[in-house]
Nucleic acid binder design. Structure first.
Length: 214
DNA sequence: ATCCCGAGGG
DNA sequence: CCCTCTGGAT
């Protein structure tokens, strides 16, 4: 996509949503990290439903370790991949407690060493908790970037590099959230709602879906 | 490339 | 029924 169009693309999303935030619910950095790990291949709504009760009881890594893997599973049974996630969250909490004084590390490379934390999760935590200008390329951003032509790439890392290179300075902090929200509510995987899309004229996606009959 | 895996929507 | 949801580890 041309530079001027990229700028206009973000300008419109920014106008519609001046202060975008994650829809995950959390009370501190540690809870955010846990919520993001749980959100892999799951919806924010589903994660929030489970963490509502969990985060009332567990606010620190030490409390999570005390709860234990089986206790955690009871809370997150309704989330996909819950066995692997419970195992990772307990292991990760033990490491935070033992090696990091119960604090969440503030750099991506250290975050990535934690079990269950890959590049995408680390990028979300760096952006959302610490205000870093990172681009976490999830299923939504990968789809929106390729479908619209805003940030095409054959894999998630290629899309991330393209976003880092092409995103104008004023939008770098919030681009991540704008693209997520756009992908979740308008540029949806199955039936993109192009008839009410604010950037349809800048988009290369050909089969623009018609508005449903009133 | 494959496995992990529940809820919600169409 | 099938597809999708803020992926990571092997």
């Amino acid at each position: 996509m041309k530079k001027a169009d990229i700028f206009e693309f973000y300008r419109r999303l920014a106008e519609l949503n001046p202060d975008p935030r994650t829809e995950l619910e959390y009370g501190n950095d540690y809870q955010l990290l846990v919520a993001v790990v749980l959100s892999a291949q799951a919806t924010d709504v589903g994660v929030n439903k489970a963490t509502r009760a969990l985060f009332r009881a567990v606010k620190t890594p030490a409390q999570m370790v005390a709860l234990g893997e089986e206790g955690l599973k009871e809370h997150i049974k309704t989330i996909g991949l819950f066995n692997a996630k419970a195992k990772n969250v307990i292991a990760l909490s033990q490491i935070l407690e033992r090696d990091f004084g119960g604090e969440v590390p503030r750099d991506r490379d250290t975050l990535t060493t934690l079990p269950g934390v890959g590049r995408k999760t680390a990028n979300v935590v760096m952006n959302t908790a610490f205000g870093a200008e990172t681009f976490a390329v999830d299923t939504h951003i990968f789809r929106v970037g390729n479908r619209t032509g805003l940030a095409p790439g054959k894999d998630v890392l290629a899309v991330e590099k393209r976003l880092e290179k092409d995103t104008p300075a004023p939008f770098r902090r919030d681009a991540h959230h704008w693209l997520i929200l756009h992908g979740r509510y308008i540029c949806k995987a199955r039936k993109p709602e192009c008839w009410r899309c604010p950037v349809a004229d800048l988009c290369r996606y050909k089969p623009k879906t018609p508005a449903p009959a009133a």
